[in-house]
């Protein structure tokens, strides 16, 4: 089955300041060192992200939120990918696109508070 890339998603990723996983060389070090095991797989996740495979990225939603942001992967990355920043970028993207949360941090805080009241 062919997957159609979502050029708009790819463009949004491309214009973001926080996201820098294009430099990723697919070496797989991050996946190997991740204490959560295979659940997250930054290598694969980023590959899907840069290609613009939006549906695949959204499918990995749980894994993206499971990430501990421990930065073990980032410390070991051979291409200086700010893995944790990128995971954060994807979280806020999902917050916005899937949960309809606003990107403005001030409002977001309110919504978070609302959600957890």
């Amino acid at each position: 089955m062919a997957s159609k890339v979502d050029l708009e998603f790819a463009r949004e990723v491309a214009t973001s300041e926080e996201f820098n996983a294009w430099a990723c060389m697919n070496c797989g070090v991050c996946t190997a060192v991740c204490p959560l095991g295979i659940a997250l797989m930054p290598r694969k996740l980023f590959r899907h992200t840069v290609l613009g495979l939006k549906d695949e990225v959204l499918e990995q939603r749980d894994a993206i939120f499971q990430c501990l942001l421990c930065r073990l992967c980032q410390e070991n990355c051979t291409a200086d990918v700010h893995i944790a920043e990128n995971v954060r970028f994807l979280r806020s993207y999902i917050d916005r696109e899937v949960f309809g949360l606003d990107a403005d941090p001030a409002e977001r805080k309110d919504q978070y508070a609302l959600a957890h009241r």
């Binding site: 089955m1 997957s3 890339v5 050029l7 694969k44 590959r47 899907h48 290609l51």
Partner: peptide
């Protein structure tokens, strides 16, 4: 453009550039 990406387990991608 349809291409099989070796780095994503030969997944077939469609790029409408």
């Amino acid at each position: 453009v349809t291409v099989k990406d070796v780095l994503t387990e030969n997944r077939e991608l469609e790029l409408d550039t």
